[in-house]
Design a protein around this nucleic acid. Structure first.
Lengths: 253, 253
DNA sequence: TGGTCGAATAATGTATACGTTAGTGTATTG
DNA sequence: CAATACACTAACGTATACATTATTCGACCA
């Protein structure tokens, strides 16, 4: 998602959607970060419910910052606030993840197209790309390299991190903030799902090739091709992932 | 956007994204609705800033529900909370609207494809469509008819309302909640922008034909065609709209 | 005369207190 | 024995009080 802490930043604020962003000094911000982290690492079980007082005690805060943090978490779709039953950590079913994957494929596909078009547009004019664009492409290269390296080391966590960075670089590079916000909003849920799929289908070996190819197509400036390429890959991968998730936990993640 | 009131519902809650939804009984919910309405109707000027106390006094409430409502408004991107300066109503520049239009074209295009595929899938199996699908198609028909009728009466407001209903029916009918939430999240900003464009380019006469055609293609079950059709129309319309917006207010809406 | 340091001010962030209400458990009755 | 009604508990929603801190205004110094 977008905002990070200060109980301030809206979905469309900030560079895109930092993980820990600014405003860390405030209790609401800390509560948000801590709770989110806990949800991500399944320290707060999916489907479980926690009373405001309970969370407040656990974090050593009063209910106020807890409430505010939870409103933001709810806006990000991570929890649901049920008036008398407490804060419920949303359980994401395999079906939900399938829908999210579909949306992300679409959105990221458009991002790829936009990025490619920006590259093409810049290439037409002068010789050298604007620094912003060059940086985006460099980041894509770097993350692909990191993914390959992590796979060599059989370090799945590092691979996952690099993959996440790749996708963020992609959507941030498109130059469309709402689009980036949308993609990043669901990145957390995807990350949580990856915790499961990662261990079961260990080596997404061809994904490196896919990513590398996408970067090449983007560089070529062919927006349509970039979009097709990415959407195809993502949808294919999604089918596999959803299958794994459904098998792993029919109840929801 | 999604949520509606209770200070509870997250982005992914509720039927899709009601305007006034449930939980109206709570002060936070009322504050949210009132403030949102005020923002939409430009009673709270874009770019203007309002202190929490100010808004609290204006609504006859304490700061608490105001804060909570504002956090939700911020999550929806309608306001920005600046620590010492107050609640700033976001000013949407023409560029921003261009980006939003682009995102919406993409997302709604996918929705059209999904809906068409659902129709195709249902047609293959039995004879009659599932009631949910039939209702969605009926709603699309109804809204197109309403648009045409409103245009005949030269009632722009009614046309705008019907158009909004059409797009909601479209994304809600795709059967992908995150996708619908994403589209609906930006519907408000689009609506606000329409207030401007509507008066300047009075009769979007061919838009009715566009919409009607889209529904026909969806009925035919051709997902790819539906997506192409919708994306084309939206992107074309977006160019016009953005031009108008830029001319109307270079500072932002 | 301009700039910087400092103190007053005011708005926020957080805690807490209070009223309302929903949920629960028990007792009573059919 | 089951169902319903009532009372009790406790969690939430809201208001308010307090502490913290940024901002602003003014005075003093260079």
């Amino acid at each position: 998602m977008a905002g990070s802490s200060t109980a301030s930043r809206g979905a469309a604020t900030g560079t895109g959607s930092a993980g820990t962003g600014a405003g860390v000094g405030t209790a609401t911000g800390r509560a948000f970060d801590v709770l989110k982290h806990a949800i991500m690492h399944a320290e707060l079980g999916p489907g479980r419910q926690y009373l405001e007082t309970e969370l407040a005690d656990r974090l050593g805060l009063s209910r106020t910052p807890i409430r505010e943090a939870c409103i933001r978490l709810a806006a990000d779709g991570l929890v649901e606030i049920v008036p008398r039953r407490g804060i419920r950590v949303v359980a994401v079913a395999a079906d939900d993840m399938a829908q999210i994957y579909d949306l992300l494929a679409t959105v990221e596909g458009r991002a790829a197209a936009l990025l490619a078009e920006r590259v093409a547009g810049a290439a037409t004019g002068g010789q050298d790309l604007p620094p912003e664009l060059a940086a985006a492409l460099a980041e894509l290269d770097a993350t692909v390299a990191a993914m390959a390296e992590a796979l060599d080391d059989v370090d799945l966590d590092r691979w996952a991190e690099a993959d996440a960075r790749f996708h963020r670089a992609l959507v941030d590079g498109a130059g469309n903030r709402p689009l980036a916000d949308t993609a990043n909003r669901y990145a957390d849920l995807v990350h949580r799902a990856r915790l499961v799929t990662l261990r079961i289908r260990p080596t997404p070996t061809d994904s490196v090739a896919d990513h590398r190819e996408l970067v090449a197509v983007i560089r070529s400036g062919d927006g349509q091709a970039a979009e097709r390429s990415h959407v195809d890959h993502r949808r294919r991968a999604a089918a596999t992932l959803v299958g794994i998730l459904a098998a792993f936990d029919p109840n929801g993640l």
